[in-house]
C-alpha cells in the first residue's frame, strides 16, 4: 500500500483507479484459473465425453471413476505402473530435495561472490562462465552428459584402457542412482541469474559496514545477507522444486530401476504414449497406440490423464504455498525499516 496516497482515498478519481486495478487483477486470476478448472472438470467427466470439443463447463454425469482408477493403477494395471504411486512419489521427493539441498547453497554462494566479492574482469569472466551454458540448447549435450553418468569422467560408452595395460581406467558410475539426477544439477545457471539479480540490488554499503565491524566474509553473508534474502531464496527454492519435480527426459535416461524412478517418468510415459498416438504419421500413431490398447482396456482415458496431471502438480502447489509464507516474511522485514 505504498503507491496510492495515504490521504484522500475517498476521492472519486482515486477510488476509480483503485477499483480498476482490483478488477484487472481479478480478471488475471480468473484467466489463470480456467485451465485448472478445465482440468478438474475433465477429470470428473465420464470417459465417453472427456475429449469432446468444445469442452463442457460441467459434465452431464460427474463421476469419480477416473480418480479411483488412477489411485489403484498399480494394482489394476501393473504393466502400466510397476510400483505403487507412493513409491514414485517418494523417489521424486528424494531427488527434488536432494537437488535443492545441493544446488541452492552452491549456486547462491557463487552468485553472491560474483555479485559482491569479486570485482572487475574476473567477475565478468565468471559471469559468462556461469551462465554461458544456458545459451546452448540442452538437448545437444544430452548424450555426452548421459555418458558422463556412465563412466565419469569419460564421456564415452566404455572407459578407455590405461595405456599399455588391459585395465580400464577406474570410473565413477552415477547412472541408475539418485545421484545421477542430483549431482549434475549441483549448479543451476538459471538460479544463478536470479540470485545475482537480487544480490546486485543490495547496497554495497551494508557489506562494507559489516566489514568494518570485522566479520569474516562468510559470517557477513550468513548473518546479514541471508536474512535479507529470504524472499529470493523462497522464490528460487520454489522454481527449483518445480523444475526438478517436473523434469522428465533426464531422469528417464539416467534411471532405469523402477524402484528409484521419479513420478514424472511413471506418469509422463503413460501420458506420452497417449499423446504420441495423436501424430501426423500413421506409422507413429499406430506404433504408440499399440501400448495404448492396454491402457484403454484398463479404462484409462483423458479423464485419467487429467487425474495424473493433477497428482503430478499437487506437490508443486503445496510447495508454492510453503514458499509463499517465506516470501511474505520479506514484507515484515520491509515493515521494520
Amino acid at each position: 500500500m505504498s503507491l496510492f496516497p495515504a490521504v484522500g482515498r475517498k476521492q472519486f478519481r482515486t477510488r476509480l483507479s483503485w477499483y480498476t486495478v482490483v478488477a484487472f487483477l481479478w480478471l488475471g486470476v480468473v484467466l489463470h484459473l480456467l485451465p485448472f478448472y478445465l482440468m478438474m472438470v475433465i477429470s470428473i467427466t465420464p470417459a465417453s465425453e472427456a475429449m469432446s470439443m468444445p469442452p463442457k463447463l460441467w459434465p452431464s454425469q460427474p463421476t469419480l471413476a477416473a480418480w479411483r482408477l488412477v489411485l489403484n493403477l498399480s494394482e489394476v494395471a501393473k504393466s502400466v505402473l510397476a510400483q505403487p504411486l507412493s513409491r514414485y512419489f517418494l523417489n521424486s521427493l528424494i531427488m527434488t530435495f536432494g537437488t535443492m539441498a545441493l544446488s541452492i547453497p552452491v549456486t547462491s554462494l557463487a552468485a553472491y561472490a560474483v555479485s559482491k566479492l569479486i570485482k572487475g574482469r574476473a567477475a565478468k569472466n565468471l559471469f559468462i562462465f556461469f551462465i554461458g551454458t544456458l545459451m546452448l540448447p540442452g538437448i545437444v549435450s544430452l548424450i555426452p552428459s548421459f555418458l558422463l553418468t556412465r563412466n565419469f569422467p569419460f564421456p564415452l560408452p566404455v572407459a578407455p584402457h590405461i595405456p599399455g595395460t588391459d585395465i580400464p581406467f577406474p570410473t565413477l558410475r552415477l547412472w541408475n542412482t539418485y545421484w545421477a539426477v542430483i549431482v549434475p544439477a549441483g549448479f543451476s545457471a538459471g538460479n544463478f541469474l536470479l540470485f545475482k539479480g537480487f544480490f546486485d540490488g543490495i547496497p554495497d554499503s551494508i557489506i562494507n559496514a559489516a566489514r568494518v565491524d570485522g566479520g569474516s566474509e562468510f559470517n557477513i553473508f550468513r548473518r546479514i545477507i541471508l536474512p535479507m534474502s529470504i524472499p529470493v531464496y523462497a522464490v528460487v527454492a520454489y522454481f527449483q522444486f518445480g523444475a526438478t519435480w517436473d523434469s522428465y527426459l533426464w531422469p528417464l535416461v539416467v534411471i532405469q530401476d523402477s524402484k528409484i524412478a521419479p513420478l514424472t517418468v511413471a506418469i509422463r510415459s503413460i501420458t506420452d504414449a497417449f499423446n504420441y498416438a495423436g501424430t501426423t504419421n500413421p506409422m507413429t500413431a499406430f506404433g504408440a497406440s499399440a501400448q495404448m490398447n492396454e491402457l484403454l482396456r484398463q479404462g484409462l482415458s483423458w479423464n485419467g490423464l487429467m487425474v495424473l496431471g493433477l497428482l503430478q502438480a499437487l506437490p508443486v502447489f503445496l510447495f508454492f504455498i510453503i514458499a509463499r509464507e517465506y516470501l511474505l516474511k520479506g514484507v515484515k522485514i520491509q515493515g521494520l525499516k
Binding site: M51, M53, F274, A277, G278, T279, T280, N281, P282, A285, S289, M292, L296, S301, W302
Partner: peptide, 10 residues
C-alpha cells in the same frame, strides 16, 4: 493433427 483413436477427430 491427431491420427488416432484418442484425439478430437475420433
Amino acid at each position: 493433427w491427431d491420427f488416432s483413436q484418442n484425439g478430437q477427430l475420433a
